[in-house]
Amino acid sequence: MKAQRTILTLLPLMLALSVSVADAQQKSLTVRYVNSAVPADPGWSGWETGPSVEVTLAPQTVAQPYLLSPSIKRLTVKAVHNGGWIAFLLAWKDATKSSVMYTDTFRDAVALMVPVGKSAPIRMGGPNERALILHWKADWQEDIDKTFQDVAQLYPNAWLDWYPFAPGEPPYDIRHWTNPEARRYLTGWVLGNPRSQPDKRTAAEEQIAEGFSTLTTNERQSAVGKGVYANGGWRVVIARPLVTGDPNDPAWGPGKVVPVAFAAWDGGEKEIGARKGISDWITAKLNPVGAK
């Protein structure tokens, strides 16, 4: 039975690798130089021109839980830089917008990964081969576009008379829970977990990893992200200064070539964490400053 399991385990892995290798051979992404600001906005007119690349997403079959059949099969990717900032436009079809996290629902998300050093394993980096991961989340976008998804937003018909120590009155907006007695019940917020913060600055989280299970929020947050859902699909921009002075800055810059990999999650299909579609490394070529 054990031998059978091993073969079963390897099968999807082999399948995934064959797809990825074929993909890598044909894909490279030109990062166009633009002589303007690079806004984190999918509606920016600059996105209307320039080359794009179709990135195939393969099953994640290396770390359990696997995702044997990713819902999102491909991303359309464009990228620009202005010498100071780099921005990626990621677009894909998704019939359902998933942006609210009830106990049994998940949100849409997309991420890109760049090695911090010269290279890194595709498995979210490896020991001493760190990867920088920029991760956009639809629920954070919802927090920013509307308001933080507190109980009153999630369950408009819910009513609670009292939360101990909570200031104010029903529905006791979480953003007013500033006294330590009330905040002791808000574990994630108090511990600085970015997911639990009611006042989100942007919908992208900057993360670092040295292999599966090591994903950690980067101490310094420089990336910004914005996603818009329209016409049955998402258009998401993730942007970051090329150089921030952070030791986790990738070795990217005008005229340089860096590997970039992508992942996407369809919240409607309960994809989250390791349950994701992943690409292989794509070669991103940053045009020199001034290049047309």
Partner: peptide, 27 residues
Amino acid sequence: QGRCRGYRECVRACPYGKVLFNPVLRI
């Protein structure tokens, strides 16, 4: 509570149903 990302793999896995998801803190 600082490291959890709300994937809910634990909620799926616990056969006793004793891990619960906080939809406000999202962990």
